[in-house]
Design a protein around this nucleic acid. Sequence first.
DNA 1: CCATATTGTTAGCATTGCTAACAATAAGCT
DNA 2: AGCTTATTGTTAGCAATGCTAACAATATGG
Lengths: 142, 142
Amino acid sequence: MSSEADLVLLNSALTQLMRRLRDVDELQGVGRARLSALAVLRFGGACSASELAEREMVSRATMHHVLGGLEHDGLIRRNPDPEDARRHIITLTSRGRATIERAHRARITYLREVAADIAPGRLRSACEVLDRMRDVANRGAH
Amino acid sequence: MSSEADLVLLNSALTQLMRRLRDVDELQGVGRARLSALAVLRFGGACSASELAEREMVSRATMHHVLGGLEHDGLIRRNPDPEDARRHIITLTSRGRATIERAHRARITYLREVAADIAPGRLRSACEVLDRMRDVANRGAH
DNA sequence: CCATATTGTTAGCATTGCTAACAATAAGCT
DNA sequence: AGCTTATTGTTAGCAATGCTAACAATATGG
């Protein structure tokens, strides 16, 4: 039983906040898809290119291109899988890990600045609400 | 004085929720940049191509391409400005207006579903928090 | 052993973004 | 008036991110 006006406000706030986070990301000099792939590797662990494509909900061909760029920039390595000659296990290089951690820090720092004048209790409640919404949304997305 | 863990959670929830909203957008059969341009025209009013580019924080060349696609699909019109022969005033066609309103409805409907089990008071508070954060972020972005 | 599936790869396309250049037009200054 | 400068739309050309369709190499299941 949520108010229409609340949801409209939420939609535009989400959209514009996300745009600002994109601006923060762009300062890293690594594209969105590449940064996102690094994040999946960092927080989800090493895996094959196909599995990475699946986690990112992107085609294998697209992930192949993204990984090509990341490898060219020395942020990942493609290691042959000893148990399956078709596969490559994708791992972060130390530069790759440093890059994604720096980008993550930049986002958190930015969010802290932007939330500076929000009462801690209200902020926490809002985070819980969004986390719950994310959960419900992801449940439906599979 | 915001907790690190809250902000980390907020970042991932924002990112993933936004991805779901993108999925909803894609069902409209109109690309992101085009949908966004339609939204600016619908909720900000008719304006020139350059002004549209500025509002979307995108180059004139990029906006020119986006408008080309929208015009080709019959969603906007480029009308010569009687007061300035260089300019075109961009207006929505009725199909363009219908398209952006349908897309907006789809987003709101989706958010309502995803927030179905959140208590109205908590949801409202969360919306206010995000609205405030958006305000602060946009203040810094100009 | 043979059919089928999976994995990575390539080719080719569309969309979204950029910068650099250009012509037409407007605006400002002397 | 004329001359310079700024703005507007446009084009060309590039890069990144996405797609599908096809292919070879390899696994897997009968």
